[in-house]
Design a protein around this nucleic acid. Structure first.
Length: 424
RNA sequence: GGAGAGGUGGGUGAGUGGCUUAAACCACCGGUUUGCUAAACCGGCGUACGGGUAACUCUGUACCGGGGGUUCGAAUCCCCCCCUCUCCGCCA
């Protein structure tokens, strides 16, 4: 959520910048400003009445103590009206504050100045590219066939015990999962991210803190009996570790990485995009999260992007980095880079990571603040996160790109983790 | 699942209706003293939203798990909810 203060001070800027996200903010901003004016007036009136009440009460107490009951009773009579006034003012204030909040959460985060104009994924800007797209021979098949051929993942068994989108990994397929998770965690740790292993379910407050609730409620599995949500990404529990906190500027940067299973209902998805490993209800991912000083959050973003780049390079996959255009960015992000790897048999790019700077948009909800050393004033921290990496599409690309007549070759860097160098 | 105890500032913890402006201690920060460390002493030490100001100082209101109620006045009394801990049961 944008801060009220910022909207007040940068009214036209907010409207202008949100145009890039194809969002017309002018009406909402006007409404916010007028509601805030209302709020301030009500607040002033309420507070001065309360101040009056407080001093009257004090007097009454003093009168009783000095035995002047008559005068005390007289003073009491005066409080009745005041009490009513306060009640009414506070009720109005409450209403206005709720309305104001409802409007505030409608505004998306402002896109960074460098975000390209555009409406759809077509308009995303390729900023960097590397690796070589392998030339597969005619016998090459997509990963869902390879998976069957080598008995790596069983979708039908998953359907039997749970449902579509919950694959069962088997044998070398299962080992490959473990290998990738450990590889990603080790690499993240080398890059300075401290590992945490968070719960896979979170409460409502956490869902709200990172912005999944209330807007994207339908995308999460909801355990209604206990009112808990299965996490769609480790970003949720890990970022919420710092909810409602005031940290010291000297604690920055706070860097965490976490492996977790991720659960997504993917309501409304269909078609060829969901074939094989392309889209699942449950999948594994290593996430990196960073909380920084606002002055250096964009440097932190570049570092995180560089880290992800080393991962796809070490896995010897053809990769490219996209800077998302305004229209394709998420509601909460200020700048997002997507990583894609080329899946040679499907002949398409697959998104495997999304790295974003949220600036203070998330921390305003989370109430994640910091203080400069020696300063009394609190400021909102900047939060960032990124996948490093999500497994299924990496597996899809690895299988497809590395298929040979003899079997599927495992990238060198993974061999110490898998314990085998070929799947055959 | 059953029974009990409890939720007060960063932590421990006092506080049964107005001498509370939430004590005290610890931690933390600043200062004095000191050969260094330690200690002692002095001072400071919450958050949010307002008002005021050139700025600092200043000032108002709210906040003792959350919500409601009683009262001139609530951390304190009443009601509802949430959470935590202990014991028992079940269990990897």
């Amino acid at each position: 959520m944008l801060t009220l203060k910022f909207i007040q001070e940068h009214k036209t800027e907010v409207v202008e910048r949100l145009k890039k996200k194809n969002f017309d903010a002018s009406e909402i901003v006007e409404k916010i400003l007028s509601l805030n004016e209302k709020r301030r007036n009500l607040l002033k009136a309420s507070e001065s009445s309360q101040a009056e009440m407080n001093s009257l009460s004090k007097e009454i107490g003093a009168l009783y103590r000095s035995g002047k009951a008559d005068e005390a009773n007289k003073a009491k009579a005066k409080t009745a009206e005041l009490k009513n006034t306060i009640k009414e003012l506070n009720a109005d204030l409450d209403t206005v504050e709720k309305e104001l909040h409802e409007e505030l959460v409608l505004l998306p985060n402002l896109p960074h100045d460098s975000v390209p104009e555009g409406r759809t994924a077509e308009d995303n800007e390729v900023v960097k590219q590397g690796g070589e797209i392998p030339a597969l021979d005619n016998s090459a098949v997509p990963h869902w066939d390879l998976i069957k051929k080598y008995d790596l993942i069983d979708f039908d068994l998953g359907i039997k015990i749970t449902g579509a989108g919950f694959p069962v990994y088997k044998g070398k397929g299962a080992k490959l999962q473990r290998a990738l998770i450990n590889f990603f965690l080790d690499e993240a740790e080398k890059a300075g991210f401290k590992e945490v292993l968070p719960p896979l379910m979170v409460n409502e407050d956490s869902g709200f803190g990172t912005g999944q609730l209330p807007d994207k409620e339908g995308q999460m599995y909801h355990v209604t009996a206990d009112n808990l949500y299965l996490i769609p990404t480790a970003e949720v529990p890990v970022t919420n570790l710092y909810r409602d906190m005031i940290v010291k500027a000297s604690d920055f940067p706070i860097k965490n990485c976490a492996y977790s299973a991720c659960f997504r209902r993917e309501a409304g998805s269909w078609g060829k995009d969901v074939r094989g490993l392309n889209r699942l209800h449950q999948f594994d991912k290593v996430e990196i999260v960073q909380i920084t000083h606002p002055d250096i959050s964009y440097r932190a973003l570049e570092e995180m992007v560089a880290h992800v780049q080393t991962l796809v390079e070490k896995l010897e996959l053809p990769w490219r980095i996209l800077k998302l255009c305004g229209g394709d960015m998420s509601f909460t992000s200020a700048l997002t880079y997507d990583f894609e790897v080329y899946s040679a048999a499907q002949e398409r790019w697959l998104e495997v990571s999304s790295v974003s700077n949220f600036e203070n948009y998330q921390s305003n909800r989370l109430k994640l603040r910091f203080k400069e050393d020696g300063e009394k004033q609190t400021q909102l921290a900047h939060t960032l996160n990124g996948s490093a990496l999500a497994l299924p599409r990496i597996v899809a690309a690895l299988l497809e790109n590395n298929q040979t007549p003899e079997g599927i070759k495992i990238p060198e860097v993974l061999v110490p983790y898998t314990g085998f160098d070929i799947i055959n």
